[in-house]
Simulated assay, not measured.
Amino acid sequence: MKRNNKAGGRSSKSGLWNTMRQYKYHYLMVLPVIVWYILFSYLPMYGITLSFKTFDFSKGILGSPWVGFQHFREISHDPEFWSAFKNTVIISLSKLVIHFPLPIILAMVMNEFSRTKARKFFQTLFTFPHFISWVVLAGILTNIFSNDGVYIQLMTMLGFDASSPLVSVQGFRPMIYLSHVWKEIGWDSIIYMAALTGINPELYEAAEMDGASRLQRLRYIAWPGIKSTVAILFILTIGNLLSLGSSFEQIFNLYSSPVYSVADTIDTYVYRTTFTVGADFGYMTAVGLIKSAISLVLLVLANMTVKKMGEQGLY
């Protein structure tokens, strides 16, 4: 039996090497990605130890003194952290509810265009804002919604007592949601458009011959064709929920002290506190570790939920 196990192990190893030699160019194409993840995702993980240390510049990360769970106890009593955590959850869930379905709807609507030129025109129109950086877009929004901007002047001319949403506790979040949808809806719809183009066109022709309406074709052909793609992207979105994706750049370039109570998220809180106030790096690393742990739990729960619904998860 031992000889058979050894022989089986050798044959499996030789089979693996034969497969790698056969597809060596495919592995070479993947190699830069693997190296990138090793250098920038796995090697820096030793910095997590700062969560349990008080950082000393003279001793470095590894030589800094251990303080155990002191930073986590301080976080549990920090009202600014809990305010940022609450804002992160509210903004993330609101964006998920408002934004996530819209690229799917847009892709399905554009897929129904019979004219290719019209489809390309609207796809370009909706995708173009993605390539405007949040720094530039924040400058444009600041000029529009400032006290001397077009929005305030127009509202004043119409007889309304308007205030800038940039400094309004009630108006800041809606502006964040609307500007995010305007900027990203076209870009996020591209992957759904690609999934829709993979559906066999004969299914549409057969359904049309059977008298199916356009809404029925969307429901029984288009939606089942992209449902697995939607499930995968939903899992990834949930896993990235607390990170807010590109929202750090969006909020950081738009918010100010009057709206900290509704706009300060975990990422902006860490950045602002670390580089403005000069807080302990160990404390901020502990905040990031808590956020990553919660994101991992959300990712696992989302994957389990999708698999229970009959779709294939990430693993």
Rank of each mutant, 00 (worst) to 15 (best):
Q250A: 06
T127F: 10
L233I: 06
V230T: 07
A206P: 06
Y260W: 15
K307C: 07
T276A: 14
T237P: 03
S228V: 01
S168Q: 07
F72D: 04
F126C: 13
S246R: 13
Y42P: 08
V89Y: 00
D161H: 15
V67K: 03
N303D: 15
A194Y: 06
I91E: 03
P101C: 01
S256K: 01
L196F: 10
I290M: 08
P129K: 05
A286T: 02
L296A: 15
G60P: 05
L16R: 14
A206M: 09
Q22C: 12
F85D: 04
G47A: 12
V277Q: 15
F40S: 04
I38F: 05
T124S: 14
A195C: 14
A195N: 07
L158G: 10
Y271A: 09
I105G: 11
W182D: 09
I90N: 08
L96Y: 08
S257W: 07
V262D: 00
A212C: 12
M304C: 14
A302E: 03
H180V: 03
M155H: 13
S292K: 01
V30Q: 13
N240I: 06
H99E: 06
W82L: 03
Y151F: 10
A206V: 10
F113R: 05
S94W: 04
L215K: 08
R21C: 15
G282Q: 14
L289F: 08
I176S: 02
S94D: 05
L166T: 04
S189W: 03
Q250W: 05
L242W: 04
Y220F: 11
S189V: 00
D188Y: 08
K24T: 10
I104D: 02
F52R: 06
T273L: 03
S58W: 03
F57P: 12
P79S: 04
G60N: 06
L254W: 00
L154N: 10
A222H: 02
V33I: 12
S11H: 15
F248E: 00
R115D: 12
V67L: 05
F69A: 15
I98A: 10
V230K: 01
Y177G: 01
Y269P: 00
T88D: 08
G239N: 05
A118Y: 14
A84I: 09
I294K: 00
L301K: 11
Y255L: 08
P101L: 03
F126I: 01
Y260P: 10
Y315P: 09
V181S: 01
F234P: 03
V259W: 05
A293R: 04
S163P: 07
F121L: 12
Y25E: 12
L166I: 08
L218A: 10
V109Y: 09
G8M: 10
M20F: 13
F100S: 06
W36I: 15
A194L: 07
F85A: 04
Y25C: 13
L244P: 00
L289W: 08
K291Y: 02
E74D: 15
G171A: 04
P201V: 09
F234M: 04
M193I: 12
D188L: 09
I34L: 09
L242C: 00
V67N: 03
G68E: 12
V167N: 06
T116Q: 06
G288E: 10
S133F: 02
Q250S: 05
D148I: 00
F160N: 06
G225F: 01
S189M: 00
H77W: 15
Y260S: 05
D188K: 09
E311G: 15
F52C: 14
A279F: 07
Y283W: 05
W187Q: 02
S76V: 04
K117F: 13
